[in-house]
Nucleic acid binder design. Structure first.
Lengths: 179, 179
DNA sequence: CCTTGTTTTGTACGGCCGTACAGGACGGCC
DNA sequence: GGCCGTCCTGTACGGCCGTACAAAACAAGG
């Protein structure tokens, strides 16, 4: 805390820029140089603050991951309440939802122990929570469709007010799962 | 056609292997070496047949892109018929749907003229077709949710019989859009 | 047999990535 | 003043990517 925490400010700036870039291009498609250019630094400076690159993703995702963890830990009377809670979560963290679903968890080449491993676990757990144990093929399709509807609806409508998105998507998710 | 079209056979093998690898890992995450290893060749041999790498994606996508084009060219009495046709399309080409939606079209860094450019155009056109001209925020959310439901439902249930998926997903998509 | 064209290999290059390391600039503290 | 920790830069390395190019197998046709 020597230099009046000025470094901590740039840390936040890096974090914000990285979050935006990841949201629109995806994790793997954004290099340290890209982030550095967005903040006006060199890639080495970015690497100095976040070591290794995974820490960037981890730190950006952290709050969302916590929320998701409590969501998975809670119990719900039925699928409606669960879908309501999940949609609220997705809307609240819509800037990072793409990271949690597509990017990092997408490739199955993720080495064990990496953040991608935990994230794919999240996705499967979410599905299992919604579909229940030993789901039928039809239920599996419905569950994935419901999750996909929420994810797509959240990611593609960043400019729409959160309340509108949340309301519409809870209705949509429930409609899918009960179709 | 000198060597009895034996080369054309390996061409197909490469194509099939690449399609599978792309489907499970994504386009950018699969290298020529990976494909070559899957077919038992060197990456140079693969590069000989498909030059440059884009051609692989283009050739794999081609039939689906044609179908999509006719889908976009056709006229439908209402959104139900359109969603039914779109779901049928997605199920029929479910091995490459991921390529058309996530991977190539995902990054906005796609240089003009590349296949990614056309694919993102497809996605926007699809959305515009469903949402109609000058859609309200609510309609936008519903439209993206419906498309996302179909995509997710198709990609995540590769092992489920096509008829089941198609039937369930048309119902789901309609339910979303009418929610 | 010998040439021809296709297919596959081996080797090598340039580019971008994430990372390591040494050093410089700057403020706080003795 | 000297010293130290923080922040940032410059340079460089190794790795993987897609690609280019020369040369080797190889079947087919003269």
């Amino acid at each position: 805390m020597t230099t009046l925490d000025q470094g901590n400010a740039t840390r936040s700036r890096i974090l914000a820029a990285a979050r935006d870039l990841f949201a629109e291009r995806g994790y793997a498609a954004v290099s340290l140089a890209d982030i550095a250019a967005a903040v006006g630094l060199t890639k080495t400076a970015v690497a100095y603050h976040f070591h290794p690159k995974d820490r960037l993703a981890a730190e950006i995702i952290a709050p969302a991951a916590d929320d998701l963890l409590t969501l998975l830990g809670a119990r719900f009377p039925g699928h409606r309440e669960f879908l309501r809670a999940f949609t609220a979560f997705a809307v609240r963290h819509r800037a990072v939802v793409r990271l949690l679903t597509e990017d990092i968890g997408g490739a199955d080449s993720a080495p064990p122990g990496s953040p991608g491993e935990a994230i794919r676990e999240f996705g499967r757990e979410l599905f299992a929570r919604l579909a229940g144990p030993d789901p039928s093929p039809s239920t599996r399709v419905r569950a994935w469709a419901a999750l996909g509807a929420v994810q797509s609806g959240v990611v593609k409508t960043m400019d729409v007010p959160a309340e509108v998105v949340e309301e519409r998507l809870t209705a949509a998710a429930v409609a899918v799962f009960e179709s």
